[in-house]
Amino acid sequence: MDEQPDKTSTADPAAEPAVAPPPAPAPEPVAAPGPGAPSAEVLKAEQLSVYYGPKLAVQGVDMTIPTNNIVALIGPSGCGKSTILRCYNRMNDLVKTARIEGKVLYHGADLYSSHVDPVEVRKHIGMVFQQPNPFPKSIYDNIAFGPRVLRMKVDMDEVVERCLHQAALWDEVKDRLKQSALGLSGGQQQRLCIARALATSPDVLLMDEPCSALDPVATARIEDLMQELRKLYTIVIVTHNMQQAIRVADRTAFFTVEVPSDGDRYGVLAEFGDTDQVFNNPIDERTKRYVSGEFG
């Protein structure tokens, strides 16, 4: 289904088998028919199109996201990269007019099958937003929010400490866990949001331009963190910053805007492959022009 099937997978550093399953209880696949064990393909979009009302937003995306990879979605504004990202945890369901065609498979199970509960999907596939959005609660309660609403039977103190360690925030906040999360700096808030997303033990983390509201130092910390997290989780990141995609991503998907002469513009996936190849040796003409800075 990939446009460049398997072309670069052997060179992919993330594909190294050294990666053990997450130490937290390995997430069950979504309650739906499908293979029991996590497969090498975590998420797979098949001919995925998204509409907002009658308007086509993204057309015909085929994309496979391998386990323990960082996949960057890049492209100009309006190309639908965030829309595709939100399809992976069914956050687009919250937009009243949104509907999809095609399939999104999670470990082989169709996320949009009628008996899949979107709430259950979001438990397995976490999300970090563009603007840090800590809840107006204590740092501790922010992390505990997910496990509490899911009624997970866990040692909450242990979960909070583990997630803050994983998000490289523990040393900075361990003495003020009971204080409001709103007192943290922007970069700390975003790492808190990452920690919060980890608390439900997902196996995929979706990040929608997680650094666009942060300064370069905070951005660098988040990028380092992503390299650490990659060992345990699969990460899909939308970014406007091509340098960031080059720095962090194993694979890169380039989306672009189609402007038909007789209709509204919509997004398409132009190229998907190893980051190195997409930036240095793009196959698609549009990719070539975008990564060389000719438009976008």
Partner: peptide, 22 residues
């Protein structure tokens, strides 16, 4: 802010939980 609702629901809360707790 809508981010409070989205943030809660992205963590697997139901709509009611997002409203009631957040």
């Amino acid at each position: 802010p809508p981010s409070h609702r989205l943030g809660a629901m992205a963590l697997g809360s139901t709509k009611w939980q997002a409203i009631w707790r957040n």
